[in-house]
Design a protein around this nucleic acid. Structure first.
Lengths: 226, 226
DNA sequence: GATCGCCTTATTGTATACAAAATGGATCAG
DNA sequence: CTGATCCATTTTGTATACAATAAGGCGATC
């Protein structure tokens, strides 16, 4: 993470994910270069990466903007993620080792601990949750699947979802992880696929419930911009 | 396609897809810049794109090589494509207009004509086939799904598959397109999904049958290198 | 003779200067 | 007042020079 292009990537990405930059905001190379303290060359590199991850969109005339996600877009992203993570779980179920199952149990234990603190430690939840899903993706053993999924799971709106979870939803997520581990222990691909797919779809419904649709989403945007 | 980075992208991509460059071959920026007649800057741009499309892989020390696809990788790519194009067909079935159905019929008619000539006009088949699948993907109306799929369907090994089709397989492909159109006319998402998924899976089996596994694949590589 | 470490060389990363293209505004005609 | 065209300015694209880093070979030492 010491190369200039990595600095630029992380800096710009963080500005988008945190909400410091809002959807539709223009992104000039020169300005970003100054912010990041590097030249335009690594900034361009970083922007290409962010563009391929759909965090940035480019106009026909090659100008860049923070990507704007409609509720339909978000719904699509979750649908695809449910399908692909379901496939990952299905593949993992027949390949996973006892050692990796123990790792998953350790991650989920820490998720349970994060949930138990008051208020719930959402950052710890997210970090362990990320490890949990990443390990399953690795065990699935398909570089292509991993590449496709990583462009989906790193999206800012999806990422922020957990911040809107209720205590009950956090608990439910923890329990579903446990059930997934059970499916892995049995080596049951269909079960694992069903749990994982449902797990992701539930996350989407938690998200859309919390926001009561697009109107609420726009309200949140206005508030942050102010 | 007149920008230097597009020239570089197309030139390098063509060298990989055509087999002029073989899996594992090292790709130096300087050398490629000279071949393409541009400077290293647009070449680096192009290589980043090709890397995100998995045509190029990078070593831990940032050196680039032509990606090496094992039979497992190819199988994975087809599995994902079957799933995602199935989803596209499913979504398209409940959204497609009568005008677009007529377009699909026109494309498939030209596919039939390409098959009818002796020998079969594989390039025309591929072109109309591409239009057919692209239109369905557009009608599916998910930018994310389109982005994900395009990194899969443009892969060189998948693309060359049709060159190994037997006359019977070409006919079968044409008939499956017809059945897909029938599913669209009925507005039956499940039917469309099943046909499309099977259509892609059949393509994979045609491919693996033609190559009798990895040994045949290696033989072809040696022949081309000579 | 083998292995370790250094040094040379090749390759990639970054910065900067310049060229091309596009945007936005000002001016002028209708 | 509206609209269009042209120009100034901003923004992106490309080339090149230089810096940092990794690879490979050479020699020294055990």
């Amino acid at each position: 993470m010491s190369r200039a292009s990595d600095i630029a990537y992380n800096t710009i990405r963080e500005m988008i994910v945190s909400g410091e930059l809002m959807p539709g905001d223009p992104l000039g190379e020169e300005a970003l270069a100054e912010i990041c303290g590097v030249s335009r060359t690594p900034v361009r590199d970083a922007m290409r990466r962010l563009e391929s991850e759909l965090l940035i969109r480019r106009s026909e005339s090659q100008r860049s903007f923070v990507a704007d996600w409609s509720l339909d877009d978000i719904s699509d992203a979750f649908e695809l993620r449910a399908m692909l993570e379901g496939l990952a779980a299905q593949r993992a179920a027949s390949r996973i080792s006892a050692a990796d199952i123990r790792k998953l149990e350790a991650y989920n234990q820490r998720i349970g601990e994060a949930n138990a603190s008051t208020p719930a430690d959402v950052d710890a939840f997210l970090e362990e949750n990320r490890k949990f899903h990443t390990l399953i993706l690795d065990v699935a053993g398909s570089a292509r699947l991993k590449t496709l999924l990583q462009t989906l799971i790193e999206q800012p709106i999806i990422w922020r979802t957990a911040h809107h979870y209720s205590p009950h939803e956090l608990l439910r997520s923890y329990q579903e992880h446990d059930e997934l581990i059970a499916a892995f222990k049995r080596g049951d691909p269909a079960w694992a696929e069903a749990i994982m797919s449902g797990h992701i779809r539930r996350a989407f419904h938690a998200y859309s419930d919390a926001h009561h649709g697009l109107a609420m989403l726009d309200a949140e945007r206005s508030k942050k911009r102010a």
